[in-house]
Design a protein around this nucleic acid. Structure first.
Lengths: 156, 156
DNA sequence: ATACATCGTTAGTGTCACTAACGCAAATGG
DNA sequence: CCATTTGCGTTAGTGACACTAACGATGTAT
């Protein structure tokens, strides 16, 4: 029965109080856990986190070049390439050259992609529900607002 | 003026709303930013995030074996080795074999280590202040409590 | 005595954030 | 109009963090 050290879990125990008080640590740990939840949920339907971002961006802002997608999603151009390849392979998007600017590809969502997005919408709803389960609606809003403020501040 | 894509920053812009609503994403992004702040602050005094955890653990719970330190800090045994090497090299801790169990090393903090911890206490105070700057005391507490609840729930 | 668990250690995996540099195409400026 | 610069997609690589696997040496249990 090897349960020497399994996953990161901060069950009070005897962690140094100072350490626990480190916001960046608590934030990082919670993010890691949330990330694991999200990742495995996406993986269970053969998708990746980023697929959702790309499809949602295409749905909400329409077709665009790869760097536009990168800007909209916050995914790096370099990381986007593989993601788009996967989405093309799955028939969820199409990558066609822009006739008016030969450097560009235009990314468009297919019908299959639209269905996939609907599926991933459900998956993410499940993820959010799972992660935020212990909080009621008001608390979720509060958490969101607080994180947003930190985020905005740190981005400045 | 290349500001094509610099650091991850979520300045409203035209990110898909659904994407922005993803808690795991907001959490992850904020954590990444906080992590960057923490990392560079530690680096500016030649330290690593984990050094602080180890020294704080030793201070608060006294000397211990490497796996005890691992348990107390949440650092993996495997990652701990290099961290302890660095701390030994800096004269902040001592690694001596446990006479009563030859598999174990006993880790003790030195006087130098105690001074280092005081220094890193100041560094982390600065980090926390920087990260949490936009929030008042009550809001910080609220954020902390919310994150803790998520954390506890996800660890279950 | 044999089996099994634990300790420190080394090595390696996978993800995410991020940088560097490439060849090509397009916009810009003298 | 030609040269430089900027933007595009792409490949490769870095570094931190979380995490797994397996090792030899040493303890513990049956």
């Amino acid at each position: 029965m090897d349960h020497g050290n399994d996953l990161r879990f901060d069950r009070g125990e005897q962690m140094p109080e100072r350490f626990r008080r480190q916001t960046s640590r608590l934030l990082g740990m919670t993010a890691a856990q949330a990330s694991r939840v999200a990742q495995s949920a996406f993986a269970s339907v053969g998708a990746h986190r980023w697929h959702y971002g790309v499809l949602a961006a295409l749905d909400e802002s329409g077709p665009g070049s790869q760097s536009q997608i990168a800007d909209r999603t916050g995914i790096y151009r370099s990381d986007l390439v593989a993601t788009l390849n996967e989405l093309v392979e799955g028939g969820h998007i199409e990558r066609s050259p822009d006739p008016s600017d030969k450097r560009r590809n235009i990314i468009t969502m297919t019908e299959t992609g639209r269905a996939r997005l609907a599926e991933l919408d459900r998956v993410t709803a499940g993820i959010n529900e799972h992660i935020l389960a212990p909080l009621d609606e008001a608390e979720r809003e509060r958490l969101f607002a607080l994180l947003r403020r930190l985020n905005d501040h740190l981005s400045a």
